[in-house]
Structures are given as C-alpha cells and as structure tokens.
C-alpha cells in the first residue's frame, strides 16, 4: 500500500509540538466542550438525586431531622416520627448564583475586548473584577455553610442541599483558577493578539458554572 505519501503542506516551525493558536484553540475548545459534557452528566445526576428523594420522601425524612438518641425516628412502636427542619434561606443561595453570574459576565466582556484587539489595559480590570466576584461567591458559599439552619445529618433535603453547595464550591474554585490565570496573563500582555482564545475558553467554563449554579439555586430555593 501504502497509505503514505510525502506531504507538501506539512511544514513546521522547527520541531516540537508547535501549533498555531488557531489549531490549539480548536483542540482546546473541543476538549472543554467534552469536559463540560461529562460535568453535565454529573450535574444531571445531582438533580435526579434531588427529585428522586424528594418524590419518594422515604420515611417522611425529606425534610425531617436526623435520627439520634434524643430524636429517634420511631416512637418506640415502630411508627415513624419526624420533626421538620427549617429550609435554607433562598437569599444566600440566589446571591451566590448572582455573584458567579457577574463574574462570568466580566470574563465574557474581557473576551470581547481581547477579541477586538483591545489593549491589556482594557481587559485586565475586567478580569480583576471577575476574580473578585468569584472570590466573593466562594466566601459567601463558605459563610452559608456556617449559617444553614440544619446540618448534613438532618434528612435527605439537608444532605442534598449541602451536596449542591459543595459541588458549587468545587466549580467556583476552578473558575477562580481560570480567572486568576487570565488576569495575570492579561496583566503581563499575554492575552493580546491571537491569544484571545484563552479568554474564550475561560468564558465558556465560567458561563457553564454560572448556569449550573443558577439551576441548582432555583431548584434548592423553589422546589425544596
């Protein structure tokens, strides 16, 4: 056979894995979408857990407090008893989603600026604000853990609520890493010219995180 001939087009710039920014963008863009796809499966399962346990309300414990010596789940005759817990305030949950949305919007705006060839003086402040809002979202998320009117052991709702918030936190930390990297690269002039695509990738991830956090916040607030 052969399956091979000599390429006339395969010229390189000198060995190694040298690629044009366009080629790298294509690959990284695809990889990010695949990663988001995998993350979306995890996200869908979280929501499935929520509605499954909420619908089943096993032993009346969706909003029931935990079993303990002081609060047994049965009355001694085998009859289930529960004492309902207070739901989490929607204010914090929605505010956290709002902060991460604003952070994503700043990254998006920075991408638009970078794409249009703007100087780093235009993109750096936007990315700095994105970092700040992301930090605020993380801080508020940690604070919310402290002020919740329940703990992880207080039934299925409490368990899943805290699981959602933990999942949010993990996502936000990744946004923080990306936003910090973009901010620093913008500051030293490495986000200009053909490197705008890095901001594009950061924006895609941040928007996905903001969207998923919003969905979780809406579910946790209005469909508890």
């Amino acid at each position: 056979m052969s399956t091979t001939e000599i390429s006339e087009a395969g010229q390189h710039e000198g060995g190694g894995h040298h690629e044009s920014p366009r080629e790298r963008h294509k690959k990284e863009h695809m990889a990010l979408w695949l990663f988001i796809g995998g993350d979306a499966v995890f996200f869908a399962l979280e929501i499935f857990f929520w509605f499954y346990l909420r619908t089943l309300n096993v032993n009346g414990m969706w909003l029931g407090s935990a079993c303990s010596k002081l609060n047994p789940c049965t009355d001694g005759l085998g009859n289930p008893i529960t004492s309902p817990i207070a739901k989490a305030s929607g204010i914090y949950t929605l505010a956290i989603a709002g902060l991460i949305i604003v952070s994503a919007l700043f990254i998006w705006q920075a991408e638009i600026q970078a794409r249009s060839g703007a100087h780093r003086k235009a993109t750096t402040p936007l990315l700095g604000l994105a970092v700040l809002f992301c930090l605020a979202a993380i801080g508020l998320q940690i604070y919310q853990f402290q002020v919740l009117p329940f703990t992880t052991i207080d039934g299925a709702y409490a368990s899943l609520f805290e699981f959602f918030m933990g999942s949010n936190l993990a996502h936000f930390l990744l946004v923080l890493v990306v936003a910090t990297g973009l901010f620093n690269r913008s500051r030293i002039g490495k986000l200009e010219h053909s490197n705008w695509y890095q901001a594009h990738l950061g924006r895609l991830w941040a928007v996905w995180v903001a969207a998923s956090a919003t969905v979780l916040a809406l579910i946790a607030t209005f469909l508890a």
Partner: peptide
C-alpha cells in the same frame, strides 16, 4: 463518601435516602 464521612443520607433509608440511587 459524604454519607460515610459527614453523615449525609443519600443512601440511608432511615434518614430519607435510598440505596437504589
């Protein structure tokens, strides 16, 4: 892990969870 480590109840029916999940 969260069920075992921090006491959530995803899978424990006595506390509102379901092993089928």
């Amino acid at each position: 892990i969260t069920d075992r480590v921090v006491g959530t109840s995803m899978y424990a029916p006595a506390q509102g969870g379901a092993g089928w999940l």
